[in-house]
Amino acid sequence: MSMNEINARRDAMKKMGGMGFLGLLAAAGMITPQMALAAWNKGAFEAKTLADTLKALGAAGTPVESKDVVLNAPDIAENGAVVPVTVTSNLPHSQQVAILVEKNPNALAAQFMIPEGTEATITTRVKMGQTSDVFALVKSDGKFYIAKKEIKVTLGGCGG
């Protein structure tokens, strides 16, 4: 086999590899809108990292930290299985509220669509595997805002 042939084969391999990658991207791109159409945002709930979750929620890039988003939760959660979290948005036209726990296996815990006339104040309870930053993500007028709070989870659940 001549050197040229080898190079040609390498090029072909590279191209194929490149196509495979592009194909994957395209597939990912095609899957995302379909998932968004489904009522339950599978992509966002199955995303593992915070960045991927934000992307799946349509909040790619860094959402702006805002004082108008208030995340109310205990500093220390004695029981990681039940951590009360309240998200309040004082931003006008808040349409969407999401609660994310960074170090959980899947960061997104819950998200809510806020119709006109409903106050952007949601209280729920989430599970936390370990001490982690918890984020409240709010979509207002098409822009994303975020608030962060670290919640310590006491291991053993004995308190103190």
Binding site: A109, T118, I122
Partner: peptide, 17 residues
């Protein structure tokens, strides 16, 4: 209100709005 939960919501979910 419309909500979507993941498995990280606590057992016997509580929701207030």
């Amino acid at each position: 209100l419309q909500g979507e939960f993941g498995p990280a919501v606590s057992k016997n979910p509580y929701l207030a709005f």
